[in-house]
């Protein structure tokens, strides 16, 4: 509680009165404990001290808390900084909050949507592969699920071609979770790479993912590693990447040349090199960086110029 009653008479402040009773109570309790490893007499002394301290402490707070006025020493504390800020050339009313970086951002929801769409798209090549090669739609699903079931490690092809409810559920969880997470990542990261969205989203990321899987799959799921067909795997990854990237990009407004001219750190929202978008184009909801010099200037150390 913040009571203004802490102001004492005149130019003084009321502070709690110093007291030794808390220390005495602590000592008393410690002596009781010490008595348990030394001698009962020590504990008895401690008990007496504890009781006395309890009374003493009690009197400090009841019926009124003990206070002592402390005189305030008049003094002047200067709060100033020798450092300056960069002057803004013009300050428009739409000066947007600097905290919203980068200049444009995707909605998180788009990432989720993209993840769902991509996850669905991915099942198409996987399903085709499964049907073509093993004449069963369930094969691919069970193979994925086998990562979650250790005792499926030595399962036969026939077993994998049958329908298993737990296999379906496990595959749904593994596939759904991964798709959502990767979709989110697409939603967050695609705007950082605005230039070649199809290459980035559709090919680079899936290939990277495939590389990681290739090296880790033996430990992650040996059964999958034995039976996986890498070309089909890459195909399904690319299907995911293209669809997810497409859905995410549907809502993007990152095609503007101003945005593409920004440095990576700025697109990521890590850092601002003080580039300002054209005031008229810069919608307050989208504009983050507004301190700077000229519209569309590309990074560089414009701080100096701005001085």
């Amino acid at each position: 509680m913040h009571d203004d009653a802490t102001h004492g008479q005149g130019n003084s402040v009321l502070l709690p009165r110093p007291t030794a009773w808390p220390m005495a109570l602590a000592l008393g309790l410690s002596l009781i404990f010490a008595g348990m490893v030394t001698n009962v007499a020590v504990a008895a002394l401690g008990l007496a001290m504890t009781l006395a301290a309890c009374v003493g402490w009690f009197r400090q707070v009841l019926p009124h808390e003990a206070h002592v006025p402390v005189a305030v020493i008049a003094e002047e504390v200067e709060i100033a900084s020798a450092r300056t800020l960069i002057q803004r050339p013009q300050r428009s009313a739409s000066a947007a909050p600097r905290k919203v970086l980068p200049v444009e951002t995707f909605l998180i929801g788009n990432g989720i949507r993209g993840g769902i769409a991509g996850g669905l798209a991915m099942t198409v090549p996987a399903g085709i592969f499964s049907v073509l090669k093993y004449h069963s739609f369930w094969y691919a699903i069970n193979l994925l699920a086998a990562g979650g079931f250790v005792d499926w490690a030595s399962a036969s092809n026939a077993f994998l071609c049958q329908f298993h409810l737990q296999g379906l559920l496990a595959a749904l969880v593994i596939h759904g979770l991964t798709s959502l997470l990767v979709g989110l990542l697409y939603g967050a990261m695609l705007p950082m790479f605005p230039r070649y969205p199809i290459v980035t989203a559709g090919f680079m990321a899936p290939l990277l993912m495939t590389g990681i899987m290739f090296s880790a799959l033996n430990i992650l799921s040996p059964i999958l590693n034995q039976r996986i067909d890498w070309p089909w795997f890459i195909l399904s990854q690319i299907a995911f990447g293209l669809v997810c990237g497409y859905v995410v990009n549907l809502h993007a407004k990152v095609r503007t040349p101003q945005f593409q001219a920004l440095s990576f750190a700025e697109r990521a929202g890590l850092h601002s090199n003080l580039v300002e978008l054209d005031g008229s184009q810069a919608d307050p909801s989208q504009t983050g960086v507004q301190r700077g010099t000229q519209p569309g200037t590309k990074n560089g150390d414009k701080e100096d110029g701005a001085l």
């Binding site: 020798a82 909050p97 951002t105 990432g111 950082m192 929202g269 090199n273 003080l274 701080e303 001085l307």
Partner: peptide
């Protein structure tokens, strides 16, 4: 030259933090 100028103040960025 700009030794005594504060660098730009950035408060955060949803997408890089999400990443």
């Amino acid at each position: 030259a700009n030794a005594s100028v504060e660098p730009p103040q950035i408060y955060g960025s949803t997408q890089i933090e999400l990443s």
